[in-house]
């Protein structure tokens, strides 16, 4: 599904991402973990095209997408959420999902005129389904800025799903959540995987990562130091060293 080959992104002398090789198979939940500043978010930004790579290749479903601008990568099927929530606060919950319907399928479904200048008919069912999935149906006319924190996280996930992604990149979706919310998020992620969406989960919250992922890669100082199943990662000496420091393990 997604393959990174010798991917690097440098900021001046800082090697935020330094020659990462990664292969995410279709239908997997793939965890990307590592200490703060290890290059996880930079990797996500390079995959979605917000940052150009310094070198290396990004293959998505076998095709090199390195030259595509961000909005075309989305249309190809790569959606994301942000570590610091970035909703359109002055739009309603409903409108946040409306503007995000940019998948190839949605673009083909309606004519240009109906799609851009038509009213809210025609897409109601699809958006209602997303609202239902996220538990936000009763808030659909609320401004996004007025939602509680947990609701904003759910809306951002729904907004990414509105693009009908094949690959979903979640950048620390559990940050700031309590354990009940994390349990709900875990259920949602598993449901999404069951609908056939491949998920890359960037996360610090180990109870979530270890519980849902099929495979995990560990980054440290921009390099991949380990990859394997959750059990293998938990036992991996280099990982324990990166997280605990010193000569642990």
């Amino acid at each position: 599904m997604l393959e990174l080959k010798a991917l690097s992104r440098h900021f001046g002398g800082v090697r935020a991402v330094d020659g990462i090789d990664l292969a995410v198979a279709g239908g997997q939940i793939f965890g990307l973990i590592g200490p703060n500043g290890s290059g996880k978010s930079t990797t996500v930004n390079v995959i979605t095209g917000l940052l150009p790579p310094t070198s290396g290749t990004i293959l998505f479903r076998g095709e090199d997408i390195g030259a595509l601008p961000t909005h075309l990568r989305l249309r190809a099927g790569i959606a994301r959420t942000f570590q610091n929530i970035r909703l359109f606060g002055q739009l309603s919950v409903w409108q946040n999902l409306w503007v995000a319907q940019n998948s190839a399928e949605d673009r083909a479904r309606q004519g240009f005129f109906a799609r851009w200048l038509g009213g809210q008919g025609g897409v109601r069912e699809e958006i209602a389904r997303l609202l239902e999935f996220s538990g936000l149906a009763h808030k659909q006319d609320e401004l996004a800025a007025n939602l509680a924190f947990g609701e904003q996280r759910r809306l951002e996930l729904a907004r990414a799903l509105a693009a009908r992604p094949k690959l979903l990149l979640l950048d620390e979706p559990a940050a700031g959540m309590n354990s009940e919310e994390i349990a709900q998020l875990r259920d949602r992620i598993l449901k999404l995987r069951d609908t056939g969406i491949t998920i890359v989960l960037v996360e610090h919250v180990m109870e979530l990562v270890m519980g849902v992922t099929d495979r995990i890669a560990v980054l440290n100082f921009g390099q991949k130091i380990a990859e394997g199943t959750p059990a293998e990662i938990q036992a991996h000496p280099a990982v324990r060293k990166a997280y605990l420091g010193g000569e642990a393990a």
């Binding site: 917000l50 989305l74 249309r75 970035r86 909703l87 359109f88 503007v99 990414a160």
Partner: peptide, 8 residues
């Protein structure tokens, strides 16, 4: 940034 990321 968010607008680009939702495909606009």
């Amino acid at each position: 940034l968010a607008a680009q990321s939702v495909g606009i």
